[in-house]
Amino acid sequence: MAQRTKYSMVKDHILNWINDGTVKPGEKIPPESELVHSFGVSRHTIRQAVGELVNEGYLYREQGSGTYCSHVLPNPIPETIERISNGKNIGVITTYMSDYIFPSIIRGIESHLASKGYTLTLSCTDNDVERERQCLEMMIDRQIDGLIVEPTKSSNYNPNIKYYLELEQQHIPYLMINQFYSQLVPAHLIMDDEKGGFLAAEHLIKLGHERILGLFKTDDLQGVHRMSGFIRAFREYGLPLEPELIVTYTTEDMVPSFYDSIGYFFENAEERPSGVVCYNDQLALSVLDQLRKLHLSVPQDISLVGYDDSILAVATEVKLTSVLHPKQELGRAAAEWIIAAVEKQEAPPSHIYEPELIIRNSTAPFNRLESKLG
């Protein structure tokens, strides 16, 4: 299981303050400088954590005054929850649940299911195949009427295929989101991640960057496809791609030492890349943290591109150029599909969402003179 990031630990600690009454509704949380000192993390890590809590409704900001605990708190999403209604029961399994883009996807699913009187049973795998097995067994035991699932480690062979075949034998429809298992080729709603990776690299190439570092998670097909698009951009623009500038990692590699190792690529001014394309926004902010430790600026020294256009893309003063993920739209479409399938209506076909690059201030034209002086 992946080790939790610093900002998620800070976020959870502040949530504990809220839940146990240390910070009461209407009270101000400690200022940013105090939080930096208390947690021993960077300023942008605090901003990520607080920014997410603001976005999720736990905190609110008052201009020129500070950040406060909300008077009306949202319901937290526990490990496994069930919404009670008079409708049929739809299971939802995601790789993660409480952070990054997943709350938006879940809200899209839940809001539409609730509007149609359906029950929602929700669980997550933490991108672990054994956890996925447990989730599938639980869903089958609960006699769900349909299942929406995000595959676990989709680029590897999945030992849980038999559970999906059991769903088919029981005529229980299921839909996969974000990716799908190639052994099954089920109905799916996904992004064209290959094109997304291409757009990210092409953007930097068009800005004059040639030495571009690509960081890709490869135990999920999303990362494999994003890397493929990254490589294709270099080929189509006739640029050489140095093999050492493509770095891959897996869920288990996401530990502090991995994030620290990223700084290695930027220590030598003569060899450092001028741009970076990241698997997602979360990784991009970790790269940003490493660059700050080396006293390098984005985009003046290094241009940085994320992926998913999550709330993290605008969580710091450096606003990330990022590839847009449909998030809530995808969640709603998944709910519409599964309801149609459960009610024996004609379900919409599988759909591949076209990526869109959202350009912000983390990327800039390559300055050859500044690069030489650096």
Score class of each variant (00 low, 15 high):
L59C: 11
L175W: 04
E79Y: 09
T125L: 07
K344H: 15
A315T: 12
L53Y: 13
S274D: 06
I161N: 00
S111G: 01
A364D: 13
Q183R: 11
I18G: 04
P240V: 07
G208R: 04
S104A: 14
L291K: 03
A187M: 02
I148M: 05
R211K: 15
D20C: 13
L291D: 03
D20T: 14
S111E: 14
I106R: 01
D301G: 03
E82I: 12
Y307E: 07
I212E: 11
E346R: 13
C135W: 01
I339Q: 04
T22N: 07
L320M: 10
E271N: 00
D281M: 04
A315Q: 05
E110T: 14
P349T: 08
D20L: 13
A233F: 03
S286R: 12
Q3T: 14
K153N: 12
C69H: 07
L324C: 10
L304A: 11
H171S: 14
H112S: 02
L122A: 06
G275A: 12
S286I: 00
P299G: 03
S104W: 05
M176L: 03
A340V: 06
C69M: 10
D253L: 05
L285S: 04
G64I: 08
F216T: 08
S182L: 13
N280I: 00
L136E: 10
E236F: 02
Q179M: 02
F234S: 06
Y307T: 05
T119R: 14
L35P: 01
E356N: 13
N367D: 15
F180D: 06
R235T: 05
T250R: 10
H112D: 10
K327D: 04
L175S: 09
A200V: 06
I101V: 15
M254L: 10
I101M: 06
L324K: 15
D289C: 08
H209D: 07
I105P: 01
R142H: 13
R142A: 12
H71I: 10
G26W: 14
N55A: 15
L167Y: 01
L53I: 10
L122W: 08
Y164R: 03
P273I: 03
M254D: 00
D219S: 08
L296G: 06
K344E: 15
C124V: 02
S350Q: 11
K28P: 00
A364W: 11
I101E: 01
Y259I: 03
L330V: 04
P76F: 04
R61C: 09
K217C: 07
L53F: 09
T248G: 00
G197M: 09
F39V: 11
M227I: 06
S115C: 08
I18H: 01
P74D: 06
G91F: 09
K24E: 13
S85H: 10
G26C: 07
I29V: 12
G263M: 09
A347H: 02
T22K: 15
I262Q: 04
D99T: 13
